[in-house]
C-alpha cells in the first residue's frame, strides 16, 4: 500500500507503525511518531495498524530556538 512518511510517498507492506519503523531502521532510534496528525507513543506503535494513504510523521531531536 501507499502511505506518506514525512511527506514523501512510500510503498510498504508494514501492517503496524512498529513494523514500518523497523523497516525504515528506526527501531533503536530516538524518534517520536504521529499518524494522521495524532501522536502515537512508542509503546503503542505495535498496536497501531496502518492503512493506505495514512500520513506518518517520524521526528527526532534537533537544534532550535
Amino acid at each position: 500500500m501507499q502511505i506518506l512518511v514525512n511527506g514523501e510517498p512510500v510503498a510498504t507492506d508494514a501492517s503496524t507503525l512498529a513494523e514500518l519503523c523497523a523497516k525504515l531502521g528506526f527501531t533503536e532510534a530516538k524518534v517520536a511518531t504521529a499518524v494522521n496528525g495524532c501522536f502515537v507513543a512508542s509503546a503503542q506503535r505495535a498496536l497501531t495498524p496502518l492503512a493506505p494513504k495514512d500520513e506518518i510523521e517520524i521526528v527526532a531531536p534537533r537544534q532550535g530556538g
Binding site: 514525512n6 511527506g7 525504515l24 531502521g25 528506526f26 532510534a29 530516538k30 524518534v31 517520536a32 510523521e57 517520524i58 521526528v59 527526532a60 531531536p61 534537533r62 537544534q63 532550535g64 530556538g65
Partner: peptide, 22 residues
C-alpha cells in the same frame, strides 16, 4: 537550552547525534 523536533531521515539520522550532544 531550547531544542526542537524535525522530521528524521532514515538515511541521514541527523537527530541521533544531536540527542547525544544534549
Amino acid at each position: 537550552v531550547t531544542v526542537s523536533l524535525r522530521r528524521e531521515s532514515a538515511r541521514m539520522r541527523a537527530g541521533q547525534g544531536f540527542w547525544e550532544l544534549i
